[in-house]
Nucleic acid binder design. Structure first.
Lengths: 198, 198
DNA sequence: TGCGAAGCGGAGGATGCCTCCGTATATGAA
DNA sequence: TTCATATACGGAGGCATCCTCCGCTTCGCA
């Protein structure tokens, strides 16, 4: 059942052909390896080679480096969401927000030198993205409603702060102790001042 | 007065030949333009072309992209130091630290997408680098001695926090209001809790 | 079994980084 | 001034990467 030659993928999800599905998986696995090993410097040609696939095939599946990265992280987003949901069940609202930030930071540092790109990937349109954001927003709201976290920030701010810690933690000159101190400073800044404080 | 063919520059500062000095200046000017225009994506070949100089000449003066960037920023470091010294004369220690952070952030965002590299350049060995760090450290100590800024952080931490704000402020999804909020949160986190606070 | 859509592969153009080395020039000494 | 030589210049070209294009192959439905 042919189709008019509209160049790229039609639009809606069309079931992939069996070989295409297989190659897609091979590419994602190879990409994960390569990104893990070389971070932002991973070569797309190399990824195609690792996957045992032509470079043209890689580009048929993923428009560019970013698209490939986003796809690679997609399933991790689900795990992220689940961790967030679990945190919603814990009693201490502030502790939960702190834990959530740590989880975000870990996600953002999945691959070296890609904090910016991974962060951009969090603002995508996939269902997983939405759910991650919803979950995080719920965690934040809970702590704000309890009057423990300042109310003049939103979840995007929280994300930006996580990006900040993640980025500096990945600088060559950084050390884990400093990263911990940074997070402490930020958390303290997020807390509502106790009554009587200046 | 010839010299044995020790490949690179001898070691100590040797006076440059007149043409070399001129070309060096041309390169720095061209580099500043190119970095301003294209940020991290500026091409070194293009910089040489703008300077009206062969690519070999560029590499004779600057070992690689980072060396060129550092040289480009060198004179700005002096300005940075001077601003810091001026702040040391202002009365409010905390305000001075806040202003210092803003100055640092501005410096780090001189060129787009180069926060990491510019930050690394702050840790160099030039006199200007040292003086910038000394000045910043003095500003921080003053506020800490006054009991207004937490004492468990050092100037490298302050720098890391500036890097954090600078980086997130340069993300495509960022907006100035968020950057301002981030800085507020961080400053609040840096303040010593007023007595009576939890 | 056959046909058309979907997918594959890789050659090759474009760009960027950097090295190498033959040539040109500035500079101090005579 | 002239000369010798260290210093500096220029750019061709090797290598890597990204990405496009298009002829060939394979899948899957009828």
């Amino acid at each position: 059942m042919p189709r008019s030659p509209g160049r790229p993928v039609p639009e809606a999800e069309r079931p992939l052909r069996a070989d295409a599905r297989r190659n897609r998986e091979l590419l994602l696995t190879a990409a994960h390896e390569a990104f893990t090993e070389h971070g932002a410097d991973a070569s797309l040609d190399d990824i195609a080679r690792r996957a045992g696939v032509g470079i043209g095939t890689l580009y048929r599946h993923f428009a560019d480096r970013d698209a490939l990265l986003v796809a690679t992280l997609e399933e991790r987003l689900v795990a992220l969401r689940d961790k967030g949901r679990a945190l919603l069940e814990t009693p201490d609202a502030v502790d939960a927000v702190v834990a959530w930030m740590k989880v975000l930071i870990k996600h953002l540092t999945t691959y070296r030198g890609m904090v910016g790109t991974i962060s951009a990937g969090l603002h995508g349109v996939s269902a997983a993205c939405e759910q991650v954001k919803e979950t995080g927003a719920a965690l934040l709201s809970r702590a704000q409603a309890a009057g423990e976290i300042r109310s003049d920030i939103d979840h995007d701010d929280l994300e930006a702060l996580a990006v900040a810690v993640a980025f500096t933690g990945q600088q060559p000159a950084s050390d884990p102790a400093r990263a911990r101190r940074m997070l402490t400073v930020i958390i303290d800044g997020l807390r509502v001042r106790a009554p009587g404080a200046k």
